[in-house]
């Protein structure tokens, strides 16, 4: 087997190790033996509580959030043939965050714990539908990206407006928590609510991934070799929208991981967009699990937000990728 053949098994093994490590570490360190016992039904009640109610759901939430963003990023990059594309570029994350923020601002979240995640998913789907409509009307990828940029700017402005008008500091701090992105205090209940959207989105992306390879040739030649361009655009945007909506519902807006993971994976899969989806998902999930471990064990007075850490690492990487691209393509 080549380095390529080891990529997916290696990423799975590393992810399992990272999730196990996330169960070990924390305010009350548990030795590996007790963690294993708790995972498989042994150990005492308090150990099981710490593992099953706190650490494992949190680590899994970090993983599925990262995986959804990673696979969405890889698919959108294939569709738009641009290594800088990700859910954020098309305005999907921003729109999901805006809807979540609106539900907080108007106090709708007090009605039911489901309101906030549902609002995020509706926001992602609204943005997705808009992009899908635009994708039917236009042939141009640049147009699609510009629509996404416009959408992001608009939702960003609307979000700032809501923060300006926030009635009290508690609402403001809730909204900020949501916008920065975090997987703290997530339970299996919340993961379960996001799961149908994450699974549906991932399935759509995986089933339609072959067309992403054809798009390597450019849209015109891809049609020429037999790709149904319109259908491919709709499926990819829909799949990425569902997966991203689920991710934002679970963890808020976490940026850049959808750019970094595919960028690292690409050379290992011969730069084929279709073959980059699964490893990108695994790697992005792994990155967020590790980043979340970092967030938890860093000795800060207020726990850092996962989204902040992701952006601190991701934004410079984004700039670096953009600058390298410029030197290559003029």
């Amino acid at each position: 087997m080549t380095a390529r053949g080891y990529l997916i098994p290696g990423l799975i093994a590393a992810t399992l190790l990272a999730i196990f490590a996330a169960c070990l570490l924390g305010s009350t360190p548990l030795p590996a033996g007790r963690v294993l016992a708790a995972l498989f039904g042994g150990a005492d009640t308090s150990d099981r509580l710490v593992i099953w109610q706190i650490r494992l759901p949190r680590a899994l939430a970090a993983f599925v959030t990262g995986a959804a963003l990673g696979i969405s990023g890889a698919a959108l990059q294939g569709l738009l043939r641009n290594p800088l594309a990700e859910p954020g570029v098309l305005g999907v994350s921003a729109s999901a965050s805006l809807f979540a923020t609106v539900s907080i601002y108007y106090g709708l979240v007090a009605l039911s714990p489901w309101v906030l995640p549902l609002a995020a998913i509706i926001g992602a789907l609204a943005a997705t539908a808009l992009i899908a409509l635009a994708a039917i009307r236009t042939r141009s990828v640049v147009t699609l990206i510009l629509i996404g940029v416009g959408l992001s700017s608009f939702t960003g402005a609307a979000m700032s407006l809501l923060m300006n008008l926030a009635p009290n500091p508690f609402t403001l701090s809730d909204m900020i928590n949501w916008m920065l992105g975090s997987v703290a205090n997530r339970s299996f209940v919340e993961i379960g609510f996001a799961a149908p959207f994450l699974i549906a989105g991932t399935a759509i992306l995986l089933l339609s991934r072959r067309g992403l390879s054809a798009l390597t040739l450019g849209e015109e030649a891809a049609s020429g070799v037999g790709l149904n361009l319109r259908r491919q655009r709709i499926l990819t945007v829909l799949g990425a929208g569902l997966a991203t909506g689920g991710a934002v519902a679970l963890a808020g807006a976490i940026g850049f991981v959808g750019i970094i993971a595919p960028h690292i994976v690409r050379p290992f899969v011969k730069h084929d967009p279709a073959r980059s989806l699964i490893p990108s998902a695994l790697l992005a999930g792994l990155i967020l699990v590790l980043a979340d471990i970092g967030v938890r064990i860093l000795p800060t007075t207020n726990e850092l937000k996962l989204g902040v850490v992701a952006a601190l690492i991701g934004a410079p990487a984004f700039v670096w990728i953009a600058m390298r691209r410029r030197t290559l393509n003029g």
Binding site: L215, T216, L217, G218, A221, S223, G226, P273
Partner: peptide, 19 residues
Amino acid sequence: PMQRARLIAYLPQQRPLAW
């Protein structure tokens, strides 16, 4: 598009390779 592509190959004027 698939049926067509099995009958006729098409080389467009613009042939950018993304990756």
